[in-house]
Nucleic acid binder design. Sequence first.
DNA 1: TTGATGTATTGATATATGTCATTATATTTG
DNA 2: CAAATATAATGACATATATCAATACATCAA
Lengths: 232, 232
Amino acid sequence: MNQYTQYVKGCSACKDKAEIFNCLCQTELDQIDEKRIEVHFKAGELIFKQGTPNMHFLCLTQGKVKTYIEGYNDKNLILSIVKPVEYILGPGIYADQMHHFSAMAIEDSVACLVDLVTFKSLIRNNPDFAEDFLRKVSLQSIYNYELFISLTQKQMPGRIADVLLYLKDKVYESNPFHTSLSRQDLADMSGMSKESAIRILREFKDEKIIQVNGNTFEILNSEHLNKISQTG
Amino acid sequence: MNQYTQYVKGCSACKDKAEIFNCLCQTELDQIDEKRIEVHFKAGELIFKQGTPNMHFLCLTQGKVKTYIEGYNDKNLILSIVKPVEYILGPGIYADQMHHFSAMAIEDSVACLVDLVTFKSLIRNNPDFAEDFLRKVSLQSIYNYELFISLTQKQMPGRIADVLLYLKDKVYESNPFHTSLSRQDLADMSGMSKESAIRILREFKDEKIIQVNGNTFEILNSEHLNKISQTG
DNA sequence: TTGATGTATTGATATATGTCATTATATTTG
DNA sequence: CAAATATAATGACATATATCAATACATCAA
């Protein structure tokens, strides 16, 4: 590591990678930089758990993380797959100071933790940052509404189609894509049993809509898959 | 109407009824008061429609409103029943300026509309108001997560139980309660067909968990209903 | 290599839920 | 008032989906 890499490390380096801190001036960035705690997580490690106190603002800088609600009978519902640089924040921050979902690294990951006092003071003192934060929260909310419709009004093929399109377009941004998500995870993303998820994937494969090789997926017939997503 | 009632009308009157404007000073309240447009809706009338531009902040002062996502095949998913004084705001305000769900009066209602420029400037200039707004958005988000679990991981009896408890505790705050919601609405709240909703209600009735008389519901065995909600 | 463990896959079966058709009950309209 | 319309309720049936059991496959440790 040379002097240059040394220099751009920290929040300033993150600033160059993502727009989430665009609204912060150097002083504010330095303020976060000073407070932040960098933590490394191995794949499969829990980052925070639903039901525990939410004391920090969390920003993912490397790796990938799944956020999921732990429901009944050991069933999980995966809400999103987060990739860097993006923050992972729950509604508890401005409500009851609790985590309402869990977060787990699905790849080796690095996250920065900043105490909420610092975070909230930035929100209070920088209206641009506050607005940007509201924008992010809103976008997440919009995605949640889409998820509602997918999960409650579409049948299994439509839901699996949604998951595949989400992974291709939003998470891996490539086709084919390789994922560290298990079949159980795919099932937890689409609200069904893993056996059902596997069956639908096989059907898609038989119909030459996708190609599956272990954990590598390729969407062959995007049009058809979109149609399945639309028609439910 | 005497001079006194005249005096307390407008946003100041609302301030007394709800905490949502507690953070605003008199000047700010007057600012809203000047800009606001009061609109009366009859039961069944559409207040705003999913997919149309979201140009106003909306505050319900009288009546009741259902917010719902319009999905596929003319199926709706009711997100919440809003009662006064509460605002009805969508994530579009800080994202794409569109409505992502529809709102319909289920009783004769009155709402105040304030243009977004005014609203956003209040958020920018009053950190307390911004924080309170974030708190509200967060609470809604938390409720949405509970809804996710109810809708995706519980079977029909559990979902109907959740709807009944929601109406009793959060909407009407009484037992028995009378509702203007149709059986179709109850079905749209629990993500099932209206026939299924009716069947479950009958089962609850047969088991003496609830009493039903048209649109009047009384929860007789709260403990049992809670248990059904828990066990899914 | 071998066994051991976890994950993926498949098939058979049970069950939850939706759909369709029909009747009953309200509610509105002329 | 009766007729007309909307909503509610019920039953028979179809089907989507979960569950259970068995097997295949991959990964890892010894």
